[in-house]
Design a protein around this nucleic acid. Structure first.
Lengths: 214, 214
DNA sequence: TAGATTGTTAATCGATTAACAATC
DNA sequence: TAGATTGTTAATCGATTAACAATC
C-alpha cells in the first residue's frame, strides 16, 4: 500500500471517531459519510487503502473497521513528547485528552521562568530549557511541542533539533526553520481566522465586483 | 479574480510574515520562497492572483507587496468574536497576539462554572452560556471560538448557531455538526499528532514491508 | 434469486511545477 | 543593450467524484 496523504489521515481519524459514537453493528459508507461530513465515494475510497474490510449489502462491521483503521495509525508503544512553554497554553495541552488517555505522553516540560522550574503540572516536571538535550535523550523523547511566545519559538525549535527530535508541533504564530528531515506541524489560530474571514467574505461578496473578474 | 483556496490563504500569510521580518527593500520570488518554505514558482503563482505587483529584474517591493496582499485579507473594521470556555485553553486564546493587537477582538466569554461568571480575564467579561444569544446580537459578534471540553462542544456550537454566528473555530477534539452555510475550522491537536506519527513512521519504514505492497 | 452495497476503475477536477515569452 | 526576474501558459501531478462490475 502506498503512503496516504495527510488529508486522508485526518479523515480516517474522523471515521474512527464516528465509529466510536455509533451503536449499530454495521455501517454503510453512506452512513459513515454523513457522520464524518464527507461523501460515500470518499469513504469507500479512503477505506480501500487499508484493504478489503466491508461486505457488499451489509456495509462495514463497526468493530472490524475500527480495528483495521487503528492498526495503521496507532502505535502499540507509548510515544514520549516534551513541552516547551508552561504558560496557559502549555497547561491546556497537558490537560488534553490525547495526552491523558492516549498513547502519547508528555514526560517533561521546559520553561525559562525560574519560579516554574522544579515545579510539576499534572505530574509533569518543569525544567530549565538548557536541560532539554539531556532529558530528551534520557527519556527517549520523539516529538516536541512548542507553546512559547513567538519570539522564542525558533530558539525552542533549535534546541529540539540539536536534541535529536525529528517531529514538532508549533503553536506559536510564526514559521520556524528546521533542517530537512524534521517534520513540523503548525497549529496557528491566525491562519484559521484569516481563512475563515476570507471565506465568510467571499460568501457575502461572491457575486459582487471584487471576487470575479471573469 | 477567482476566490483562492484555503491553502493559498495560509501561504499568503506566510509571505506577509516573511515580508515583515526582512530588511531589504526588494525581494525576489526565490528569496521569498526560501523564507516561506516553498518554491519560487509557487510564490509567483500565488502572488499573481492579486494582480501585477513585481518588476522584472528587481523582484517585489517589500512595502508594496505587503500592502497588496493585506488588502485582500485584512478587513478594515474590527471583527467581534466570542469565546466559549474560560479554562486554560480559553485563557491562552485570550492572550493570543491575534486578539491583542489584531483586528479581531474577543468581546465576551462564556463558561458554565458559576465561580467564573461575572469575573473578567484580560478585560473580557465572563457570562453564563444562556446569555450568549443576547450578548452576541447586542455586540454584533461574527465568529465564535470553542474552547470547552469535547463533551460540551456540540452544545456550544448549537448555541452559536441559534445566536446567528456563521463562523466558528473548534479546538475540541471532536467533530461538530452545523447547518449548511456555517463555516467550521477545526484546530485539533490529535489530528496533527496522528499525521505526524504516520509521517515519521513512513519515513522510517518506507522501504520495509508494511508500507509498500506494490 | 434479486437487490443493495462494496471495491475499483475511469473521468473530472484542481493544485503544483516547469518552461518561457514579456519586460524592466 | 544584455541579462535577470516577473507573470503566464502549458504540462504534470495528485486528489476527488462518478460509475459500475463484482459479490454477498
Amino acid at each position: 500500500m502506498k503512503p496516504v496523504s495527510c488529508k486522508i489521515v485526518a479523515r480516517v481519524l474522523s471515521y474512527i471517531r464516528a465509529l466510536e459514537s455509533e451503536k449499530p453493528h454495521h455501517l454503510s459508507s453512506r452512513h459513515l459519510a454523513r457522520l464524518a461530513g464527507t461523501t460515500e465515494a470518499q469513504v469507500r475510497k479512503d477505506i480501500s487503502h487499508f484493504g478489503r474490510v466491508g461486505t457488499p449489502r451489509r456495509g462495514y462491521r463497526k468493530a472490524v473497521l475500527k480495528k483495521r483503521l487503528e492498526a495503521f495509525f496507532i502505535r502499540n508503544d507509548v510515544v514520549h513528547a516534551v513541552l516547551f512553554g508552561a504558560g496557559n497554553l502549555g497547561r491546556a495541552i497537558l490537560g488534553c485528552p490525547a495526552f491523558i488517555k492516549g498513547r502519547t505522553q508528555i514526560v517533561a516540560a521546559f520553561d525559562t521562568n525560574p519560579k516554574k522550574i522544579g515545579r510539576r503540572i499534572r505530574g509533569v516536571r518543569i525544567y530549565s530549557p538548557e536541560m532539554a538535550p539531556e532529558v530528551i535523550r534520557r527519556r527517549h523523547v520523539e516529538i516536541g511541542i512548542i507553546a512559547v511566545p513567538k519570539e522564542a519559538c525558533q530558539r525552542s525549535a533549535d534546541l529540539m533539533v540539536v536534541s535529536g527530535l525529528r517531529g514538532m508541533i508549533n503553536f506559536a504564530p510564526a514559521a520556524i526553520r528546521v533542517p530537512k528531515g524534521v517534520i513540523v506541524k503548525d497549529m496557528d489560530l491566525t491562519v484559521e481566522l484569516l481563512s475563515m474571514f476570507y471565506e465568510l467574505n467571499a460568501r457575502r461578496i461572491l457575486s459582487g465586483s471584487r471576487f470575479y473578474q471573469k
